[in-house]
């Protein structure tokens, strides 16, 4: 007649600090995945202003059709530019870690899976930092 006890939060005590490389890779991959899906939907939503712009031949020629104005307006906001850098970081990590996961799926280099995770983190950082000038170009001007 033993009744058992569910430890609730005690169970997770200290777990996140004990995560190993593989676990962090999974957490980040999942997080970046959610961000990218979310972005995919908004991306198409914003771009589809082009559908209503399609008929306005004159406006298109003068570059003041709905699509052009919406995108230009968005791009002139500093927040949007910074978010874009964030998006780049997210995408680059998801790509690099995705390559790592493909290798893991093929059974290649399973012993150095932690090193390849650190490598994708470092490489993501480097690529993002190098791209900041390009991404913020003109927004201050």
């Amino acid at each position: 007649m033993s009744q058992s006890y569910d430890r609730g939060l005690v169970e997770d005590f200290g777990r996140w600090r004990e995560f190993s490389a593989g676990m962090w890779a999974w957490v980040f991959h999942k997080f970046t995945g959610w961000v990218l899906v979310g972005y995919l939907f908004t991306h198409i939503a914003v771009l589809s202003t082009a559908i209503s712009a399609a008929g306005q031949t004159q406006a298109i020629a003068a570059e003041n059709d709905v699509y052009t104005t919406v995108i230009t307006a968005l791009e002139s906001l500093l927040v949007v530019r910074i978010l874009e850098v964030g998006l780049l970081a997210v995408a680059v990590f998801h790509i690099l870690n995705g390559c790592r996961l493909l290798l893991v799926d093929l059974g290649i280099g399973l012993d150095s899976q932690d090193k390849s995770f650190y490598a994708s983190l470092v490489l993501t950082g480097a690529i993002v930092v190098a791209s900041v000038p390009t991404f913020l170009a003109g927004v201050f001007g």
């Binding site: 190993s20 490389a21 593989g22 676990m23 890779a25 999974w26 996961l101 893991v104 799926d105 899976q113 932690d114």
Partner: peptide, 9 residues
């Protein structure tokens, strides 16, 4: 399996 490697560790 999500290849977190927790079990292997």
């Amino acid at each position: 399996c999500q290849t977190q490697f927790s079990c292997t560790e």
